[in-house]
Simulated scan of single mutants.
Amino acid sequence: MNAQTFDWMGQAISFRSGESIAAALAAAGIRQFGADPLGQETRYFCGIGACQCCLVRVEGTVREACITPARAGMRVIPMEASHD
């Protein structure tokens, strides 16, 4: 069976069906998701989308990583990264 992956800053991140972006990043050892507009580090915290601590850009749109399902081939970057 082929592993499903998405792109995080040029790194292929494996995930299981139904797994969130944040859970897949955490399983890959990635705990910090980059800075927010105020320069604070974003991270996986509440797991239910309430705290807004895990904001990332998914295909250019800001999303909560903890409640956004991972999809094969998607591009995920830190919120404040260049999003050309």
Rank of each mutant, 00 (worst) to 15 (best):
E59K: 06
A65T: 11
E59G: 10
Q52H: 15
C53D: 15
R71G: 04
E41H: 01
R63S: 05
G60A: 07
G73M: 03
L38C: 02
E59T: 00
S82V: 11
V62E: 12
A26C: 11
R57D: 03
A28P: 01
A26S: 14
G39S: 02
G18T: 06
A23G: 12
A70K: 07
E80L: 05
R31E: 15
T68V: 11
G10T: 04
E59R: 08
I13W: 08
A22K: 02
P37M: 01
G29F: 02
F6I: 09
E64A: 13
F33Y: 15
P78A: 15
A27C: 02
S82Q: 10
A35V: 10
T61L: 11
I48A: 05
S17D: 14
V56R: 01
M79Q: 15
A22T: 09
T5L: 04
A35K: 13
G49E: 10
A35Q: 08
G10V: 12
N2P: 14
A23M: 12
C54N: 06
I13P: 12
Q52F: 15
A23T: 13
A35W: 01
I77F: 00
A23H: 09
G49P: 04
S20A: 08
V76M: 09
H83F: 09
A24D: 01
C51G: 05
G10M: 06
C46E: 04
S17W: 02
A81K: 05
R43N: 13
S20M: 08
G73K: 07
E19T: 05
I77T: 15
T61G: 02
C54A: 07
G49D: 03
W8E: 03
Q52P: 01
A28E: 13
L38S: 10
G49L: 13
A35P: 00
E19Q: 15
D7I: 10
R43H: 14
E41K: 07
R57H: 05
Y44P: 00
C66W: 11
F45Q: 08
G49C: 11
L38P: 00
E19N: 03
V58D: 04
P69W: 05
Q52W: 13
P37E: 06
E41L: 14
V62N: 13
G34F: 01
S17T: 12
A3P: 07
T68G: 03
L55C: 04
M79N: 09
L25N: 08
C51E: 03
R63V: 11
F6Y: 12
S20T: 15
N2L: 11
R57S: 10
G39E: 00
A3C: 03
F6W: 08
Q52Y: 13
A27E: 13
A24Q: 03
C66K: 08
Q32T: 10
F45T: 04
R57T: 10
C66M: 06
C54Y: 04
G34S: 04
A12D: 14
L55Q: 12
R43F: 14
M74G: 07
G10Q: 08
T5K: 15
H83G: 06
D36V: 00
A72T: 09
C66E: 09
I48G: 07
Q32S: 14
Y44H: 15
T5E: 07
W8V: 11
N2M: 05
C51H: 03
N2T: 09
T68L: 11
